[in-house]
Amino acid sequence: MAVTTAAAPPRPSFLSRIAESRGLLSFGFMLPTVVLLLVFLTYPLGLGVWLGFTDARIGRPGVFIGLENYEYLWDDSVFWLSVFNTVLYTVSASILKFALGLWLALLLNENLPFKSFFRAVVLLPWVVPTVLSAIAFWWIYDSQFSIISWALKQMGLIDHNINFLGDPQNARASVIAANVWRGIPFVAITLLAGLQTIPQSLYEAATLDGAGRWQLFRYVTLPLLTPIIAITMTFSVLFTFTDFQLIYVLTRGGPVNATHLMATLSFQRGISGGQLGEGAAIAVAMIPFLLGAILLSYFGLQRRRWQQGGGD
């Protein structure tokens, strides 16, 4: 008798029944994340789209005005200039980041003394707050006391200071250079992680077959690195396209809107100018570009997985 009472399971309490039910437990575990993301991510995303259709201003909830914001932007040359700038900025900075980042990754993948030290140091530009390093660039690009101008003058290459941020073309080149400086480490370190997964034996086999250094790179490294290049560059493109901080610090969109990106224009119109509806419309106009970039890399990777014979 005593044996049966001891073996009888205690009546399950309410809590333990929840703990046994996988569905309820999962629900409880997912709750904080789901609530946070629904309230502060999904809802604002919808609210942003809605605001784009209203004439909301700071301190005044707007009324629905249909596509008026978009019609206004369609005829606004500054908006189109910012679209052009954003695309130019993203494309040129991404290409430079990819080329230089891949080069740096290949260099770091060689057998080097103090390899881990180099890797740690190289990542620094990516670690420090962008705004603070951008302030350093602001000083480096100073119109009167730029160290670059001074050094070039000492070398006799130029005879007067370069107006880095005052001239439209120079300003574009300068902000792209600063963005590339900040983005190279991310690309280099992630590609380096990809390079380290490539088996050394493939290189040895290719070398025995008579491949040169360029052929090793072209027919061994590059194909095996393609998936990670695709993901890294998708991230890089997304972050570059939506960049705000660097421009805000260095030029605030000037001179004559030559460096205004969609994000900075959205901030200027929406927050500084108080036209929330118009600012939101500019932000919404970025979404198709972002979706395009994401879908491109998603389907690219799908195809690749299918080629490699992976299930689902």
Partner: peptide
């Protein structure tokens, strides 16, 4: 699907959220 949704949430940039979030 939830895992994928969480990953997609990471791709939503602050630059398009700050105006509605400021209203909220």
């Amino acid at each position: 699907q939830v895992g994928l949704a969480v990953f997609l949430a990471y791709l939503v940039p602050p630059s398009i959220l700050f105006i509605p979030l400021s209203v909220m």
